[in-house]
Structure formats: structure tokens, C-alpha cells
Simulated scan of single mutants.
Amino acid sequence: MKRWPVIPTLVVAIAIVAMIGLGFWQLARRQEKEAALVQLAANVDRPPVLFPAGGTGDDLLFRKSAIDCLSVTDIARQSGRTAGGTPGWRVIAACRTPTAGIVAVQLGIASDFNTAPAFSGGPVTGYLSYAPDSQPLITDLFNRSPKRLMLISDAPPIGLTANPGPDLSSVPNNHLAYAVQWFLFAGVAAIIYLLALRRRRP
């Protein structure tokens, strides 16, 4: 009978323990997110706040806010939906402001990608939401820093359809699914290693 492989077994055991630990960590984050969602639901009816100078603040999501757009430095478009659920393009302006620097402002929804919004600056009121983020999912999974915010305008310029209102379902709470995945990974790793050990026995 062959000797028990000490080093491979130790490596696999450490990996399994780490995956189980990540699973419990995700369960703890689920509880944190549920508490945060209660606060965010209340934010819809709270008084307006100034757009944060740093441009971030998870606890400010869905709060009413306003900016003074001195000029538009860029226009971007991303897929989205109108308040009625019709597919379209989110028209997002990069606005230079006197106090908050460059602020992303979702002006409204366009039915045509090439629609040019009739907006060159001025006061904008609306509510705070997350700005588009292109970072990989795995980075977002471990990132605890506040996300960047943008202002969702409540009065679209001519040619655009009104933006949807605050939607709690847009705030992901997938931590239970992540926890289950980590536990499954740990279980599968253990089973595969035990099968490998069984096959190497004479």
C-alpha cells in the first residue's frame, strides 16, 4: 500500500478550508446587504443631499440630489430600459461641476443609439444611482470600497424618454448564491481528491 501523500493532501486541505471560509464570509455579507437594503428603501423619501465631492457613497444610493452642470465634456451610451420597460440606450453625460468635479449624469433613454441629446449644461435634479462599472465580476466580488455614483435626471431633455425611477432590484444581493458556490467547490474538491487517492492505491 502506497504512503499517504502528505504535501498534496495538505495543499488540498488548505484550499478546501479556504473555500469554506469564503462561503461563511459570503453569508455574513448577505446579512450586511439585507440591512443596507432596508436603509436604501428609506432613502427614496429622505431629503435631498449634495452630490458627494468624492463621487462615491453606497449609503447615498437613491437619495434625491442636484448638480450645476457647467459644461458637458463627453456623452456615452449604454443599453438600458425606459420607465415602461422598453429597451433603449441610456444617454450618460459627463458634466463638469463647480464642487464635485466631473459627474456622470444619465439624461434619459434614447430609442436610437445615434440620438444626440439637446443638452449642453445647466441645473439637473434627480436621484443618485451607481455609475456604469466595467470591472470584472471577480473583482466586484471582493471589492468592499464604495462604488462611484451618478445622477439620474428626473427631467430628460428633448428627444429622450424619462429615466426609470429608483429600483431596489438593481442592487444585487447574490451573496447566498456565492456562498453556496464556495461550499460546492469545497465539496467537489474533496470528492475529486478522494477519488484520486483511491485510484492510486494498489
Rank of each mutant, 00 (worst) to 15 (best):
V103P: 07
S65W: 10
T82N: 08
W89N: 12
D112I: 05
V49T: 11
D74I: 00
A83T: 01
V49H: 09
S79D: 13
E34R: 12
G108W: 06
V103N: 05
S111A: 14
L70S: 12
R81G: 02
G80N: 04
G84R: 09
D45E: 15
F113D: 05
R96I: 01
A53T: 13
N114H: 13
T56W: 05
N43L: 05
S111G: 15
L61D: 02
L37R: 14
I75Q: 04
L60H: 08
D58Y: 07
K33N: 11
Q106H: 09
D58I: 03
Q31K: 11
K33D: 02
R81C: 01
R96G: 05
P117G: 02
A116S: 13
G85A: 06
T82C: 05
F119Q: 06
S65R: 07
G57E: 08
C69S: 10
A118M: 11
E32A: 11
G57P: 02
A100V: 02
V44N: 08
R46T: 12
C95N: 05
T82A: 04
R96D: 13
W89S: 10
A104T: 00
V72C: 06
S111P: 00
A41W: 02
Q78C: 00
A76N: 14
L107D: 09
C95R: 08
D112C: 00
L37H: 07
P52G: 09
F62V: 03
G57I: 02
G84W: 00
L40C: 02
A93H: 10
A100K: 06
A93N: 10
